[in-house]
């Protein structure tokens, strides 16, 4: 049996892969990123096939409306009888397409661990307490300016067995729909200055430092609510073309 991977092994692999990509612009992580062990058998090895069809189904997308959400869905602190434990936060931002236009009336879904870093999921069995007053699931529709807003608590870091002493930095999972299926995005929002960033192969799978920074929310004092919550701003830019408009040169 090979000895278990240490953080130093993972750090070395990440450093090598980052060196290979040095300075190259890349908006998304490569699907083949070995320090994230689960990626090894789960990425295609054949190149993707480019599709250039103005009639492609994927240039349109599913629609969501007021029947798909309720007002309570955007406040993760009000979904149970009592108040959840932890630091209450407001997370707000805009969803834009890559031309900078607001993505209106589209579904934003979030899920996250509780303040102790625990998910109410069978697979998460590490010894941190569940919070009976926190499920950690929210959703909302973007408004006419493309804005979304959630009230929640700051999630804790959690261990995940990728290697010995592997810890995920605190993050909120986001699932976002754009105007087209091609703009679909599932990602994670991180909190500024988390000391775990450098050790996390999931965040570090984004090899371009500038792109990595785009996953980190900004603390915004004006978004903090006196005596109530701390404010974080995080804007999301969706990739991919849509049928409703054509980009230059397409």
């Amino acid at each position: 049996m090979t000895p278990p991977l240490t953080q130093a092994d993972i750090d070395g692999e990440i450093a090598d892969l980052h060196k290979d990509c040095d300075g190259q612009e890349a908006n998304h992580p490569p699907r083949d990123f070995a320090p994230y062990r689960s990626s090894v058998l789960r990425h295609p090895k054949q190149p993707l096939i480019m599709v250039k069809e103005p009639e492609a189904v994927e240039l349109t997308g599913p629609v969501f409306g007021v029947t798909d959400v309720t007002a309570l869905d955007a406040d993760l602190t009000k979904q149970h009888a009592g108040e959840p434990l932890g630091e209450r936060i407001t997370v707000q931002g805009r969803v834009l397409d890559r031309a900078g236009r607001p993505v209106r009336g589209q579904l934003v879904e979030v899920w996250q661990a509780n303040a102790s870093g625990r998910y109410p999921h069978q697979r998460d069995d590490h010894p941190a307490p569940l919070d009976p007053n926190f499920t950690g699931v929210g959703r909302c529709l973007t408004d006419d300016e493309g804005r979304y807003s959630f009230t929640t608590i700051k999630p804790g870091a959690y261990p995940w067995r990728n290697h010995v002493n592997a810890w995920r930095p605190a993050h909120i999972h986001f699932s976002v729909f754009g105007a087209a299926f091609t703009q679909r995005l599932v990602t994670q929002m991180y909190f500024p200055n988390d000391p775990l960033f450098a050790y996390d192969p999931v965040l570090q799978s984004v090899t371009d430092e500038r792109a990595r920074q785009r996953l980190v929310a900004a603390y915004e004092h004006d978004l903090s609510v006196p005596e109530w919550s701390l404010g974080y701003r995080w804007d999301i830019v969706l990739d991919g073309p849509a049928a409703t408009w054509m980009e230059e040169g397409r």
């Binding site: 998304h28 992580p29 899920w111 998910y119 999921h121 699932s175 995005l185 984004v206």
Partner: peptide, 18 residues
Amino acid sequence: MKATPSQTVGPFYGYALP
């Protein structure tokens, strides 16, 4: 504008997305 990078859906989406 530069796109927000993708990240894995992870193992814990099961109580949130389906």
